[in-house]
Design a protein around this nucleic acid. Structure first.
Lengths: 165, 165
DNA sequence: TATTGTTATACTCTATAACTATA
DNA sequence: TATAGTTATAGAGTATAACAATA
């Protein structure tokens, strides 16, 4: 593009000042709860994956391990529905964790249709390391940014929205 | 299942009390920023779609209309990148809005590669109605739940995470 | 008949490479 | 050669129907 054409292009949309790169204005967007929520969530998940890179765990996988540790022996329907995962989609997810020897399906002797889910020893060890990484790198960083009190208030408000909205 | 088998099934995992349905414990999950953020975001988007059902606008489409209204004449690359949408994915999205006569692509006379994006009159009218629906039904509900001050603090913290984390 | 886990499938989002027309 | 818009495509995530085994 010639210099003359460049000038002409800038003249087409009236610039406030000569040769200024006018930034796009977000306007009402920056006050919209859905917009800010989504952008914040993407940033947080991105950082979570970065912090968890050595263990290769996604947020969803981490949440499953946490739940199995706290609630050993529950079946797939119970764990999946608690996390808002549909049962059909939970099958491949469990396959992935089980193939890495992080958890195991144990056929129930009382109801041979269902599987009791448990963490393996390796699963417990990985979860312990994962918890430390999350606390030391991920959650700590949020504390630095907001302060402990604000961070707690934020989580409380998000939980209220998730539960009561 | 027989009554006896039912009793046996309940005996397998030690229940706190007889015949009690032991709920699954979320444990540390409920304090994790990523978990609460994601669940809240899903609830908010769900409510947004419900409120916007008469206009058939998704959150992403609404954000595009808002941005075009505030920044008329920008090109696809500028609008898409502002919203974190990849240019290839923005094409189909614009096709949808343009086919509904909500916005228009106008070939630039200075640079015939790029399109100036503008809202149509119908697009402006729909956006005006959409803004009213969002304010009256969606955002108002959040104000009711949290209170105006808390709501503002929440949005501010989310914006800080999105911008600085 | 109902439920658990499963398969198959489809639809949306997101991501990358490469093409075309312009510059 | 570089850029704007586009196409094609592939991968996640999410949704529903239906099947086999079991109750």
């Amino acid at each position: 593009m010639t210099r003359a054409a460049n000038e002409a292009a800038k003249a087409q949309r009236p610039a406030r000042k000569e040769a200024e790169d006018v930034p796009i204005e977000l306007g009402e967007l920056s006050e919209l709860i859905g917009y800010t929520l989504k952008r914040a969530q993407l940033k947080i998940f991105e950082d979570f994956l970065r912090c968890m890179a050595p263990l290769q765990l996604t947020p969803a996988q981490f949440s499953v391990l946490l739940l199995l540790d706290r609630n050993p022996g529950r079946n797939q329907t119970e764990i999946a529905s608690t996390l808002g995962i549909l049962r059909p989609n939970f099958v491949a997810m469990l396959d992935g964790l089980e193939s890495r020897d992080l958890c195991a399906r144990i056929r129930s002797v009382n109801d041979r249709r269902s599987h009791h889910l448990v963490l393996t020893d390796k699963g417990k060890a990985v979860l312990a390391r994962a918890k430390k990484l999350v606390a030391a790198k991920h959650e700590a960083r949020l504390n630095d940014l907001l302060g402990a009190d604000n961070r707690a208030a934020l989580v409380a408000m998000l939980a209220k929205i998730a539960d009561e909205f």
